[in-house]
Nucleic acid binder design. Structure first.
Ligand SMILES: [Zn+2]
Length: 466
DNA sequence: CGCCTTTGACCTGCGC
DNA sequence: GCGCAGGTCAAAGGCG
């Protein structure tokens, strides 16, 4: 209990360095808690750590609303400040809270020289008891506040997800207009959804990516929203609207490999046959699923925790790299299509390369918003770049220009079978941490600045957890 | 008991 | 057609 309170005071002293007596002990413990150092980056470290410091990092990370740092940090700071002042007003004894029993007892005994040691002991015990009661009460308050912050965080994350999706839809609308014009020129050259047909597909438009997850081979190609009868029968779990937009997953079971609708997610990533007669937004979404975001970060941990829950489903030795590549899929929701690959860099084993693919089809905890937003934004941007360049390749000039202010290195690989954005966070992570609040409140409507925001938050998240 | 990891087998696309 | 490489599945076992 004393630990909790002490840590709470640390966070306060960290925020309000005008603390008087407890400052020394605060500073010492500050070093013991590495998370506190990250406070400017991730609010919930200070919010939850006083409670969860002994629970483990995983639970902490799952709750870290890295993405909405500024929003919540402001709120939480105010709350804690109020508590702090209130406590000071009521209990000036509390300034020595984290020092408590040992110091109090020793001071008393040395000064009074044992004349009334029993009385002093009783008094000390009473004080301790009072402090313990007070601690309990404060813990309860902390818990309440924590719950409140969690609620707000969840609401915020849900809203942000919604916003991201709206933005993507809006952008897709614009893209579709262009695509329709292009498609009108392309359609005569391809018919029907003959998936096995030889593609001879050029690098032209990722929009030719497969959308067969909703229209398996042989299904009528002209339906926008309705799944084919075959697909409908295979679908066991009703998917949300988001899911229908972004997920080709069924129930996680492969029904038939030759027509497995999910296998196109990663397994058929080179299969870019596209039915031009299919709805363009479907093609866009399929393309976005294939867009990858690769994050390079230095980490001794086997995997950076990005706030999501992952389940490992495979591991392979990749050619040219002595380190195995691990495959994970998101398990936060049934049928979430998001997958990631984790592999150490062959040249520098301390660098962890995490590649994300797909968009989550479920609400995310705040800590997961950064990476999820990054993935979604990258997919959108890649698509946008392909549209603007018109040849399926991302315009490489767009991205570096937007990313450099965020002091991370981002590159786009157009030569890969699928568009990939690589974020290199191995150079100046700290700069990212302190730039993030500035970019956090960028007005998101310009696409460029939105990317900057999302990638910056991702960088901070990866650094924090890595 | 449920969830997770491990790991060999399998599938698919691609190059020769 | 064959082999290779990437990706995925699913049974078996471990763990809390
Ligand atoms: Zn997910």
């Amino acid at each position: 209990m004393g630990k909790r309170c002490g840590l709470a005071l640390h966070s306060l002293s960290n925020l309000f360095p005008d603390n008087t007596s407890s400052s020394s002990s605060s500073s010492t413990r500050l070093n013991q808690n590495p998370n506190m150092f990250h406070f400017p980056v991730s609010l919930p470290c200070s919010r939850d750590d006083p409670h969860d410091s002994g629970i483990g990092t995983s639970s902490d990370e799952n709750r870290l609303p890295v993405d909405e740092l500024d929003f919540f940090s402001a709120a939480t700071v105010n709350v804690k400040k109020e508590n702090f002042h209130a406590d000071c007003a009521r209990l000036d004894v509390n300034t020595g809270l984290n020092l408590l029993t040992a110091n109090a007892g020793s001071d008393q005994s040395t000064v009074d020289d044992g004349v009334s040691s029993d009385v002093d002991d009783k008094r000390v015990k009473n004080e301790v008891a009072q402090l313990q009661v007070e601690l309990k009460r404060m813990n309860a308050e902390n818990q309440k506040l924590k719950d409140m912050v969690n609620d707000v965080s969840n609401n915020y994350s849900a809203l942000q997800m919604h916003l991201v999706n709206l933005m993507q839809q809006h952008q897709r609308h614009e893209i579709n207009e262009v695509k329709e014009q292009e498609a009108s020129l392309i359609v005569p050259r391809q018919f029907m959804d003959l998936r096995p047909s030889g593609i001879a597909e050029t690098d032209h438009e990722p929009s030719h990516s497969s959308s067969e997850e909703r229209t398996p081979s042989g299904s009528p190609p002209n339906n926008v929203q309705v799944t084919s009868p075959k697909d409908y029968l295979k679908t066991k779990n009703p998917v949300s609207q988001l899911d229908q937009e972004s997920s080709s997953f069924r129930d996680g079971k492969r029904i038939g490999r030759e027509e497995s609708p999910e296998s196109e997610n990663l397994g058929r990533n080179k299969l870019q046959k596209m039915n031009p007669s299919k709805p363009i937004d479907q093609a866009t979404e399929a393309t976005m699923r294939k867009a990858r975001v690769s994050v390079r970060a230095r980490s001794e941990a086997p995997m950076i925790s990005d706030g999501c829950q992952w389940r490992k489903y495979g591991q392979k030795m990749a050619k040219g790299n002595p380190c195995p590549r691990a495959y994970y899929r998101c398990t936060m929701a049934v049928g979430c299509p998001v997958r990631k690959q984790v592999q150490r860099c062959a040249e520098d084993r301390t660098i962890l390369i995490t590649t994300y693919e797909g968009n989550h089809n479920h609400p995310l905890p705040p800590a997961a918003m950064a990476m999820a937003s990054t993935t979604a934004s990258a997919a959108t941007m890649l698509l946008s770049g392909s549209m603007h360049s018109g040849d399926g390749m991302m315009n490489p000039n767009l991205f570096p220009r937007t990313m450099l202010p965020c002091s991370s290195m981002a590159t786009i690989s157009a030569s890969a079978p699928f568009p990939t954005v690589t974020l290199d966070l191995t150079h100046s992570p700290n700069a990212l941490q302190f730039q993030r609040p500035n970019t956090q409140f960028h007005v998101p409507f310009p696409v460029v600045s939105r990317y900057c925001v999302f990638f910056t938050t991702t960088a901070a998240s990866a650094i924090h957890t890595g």
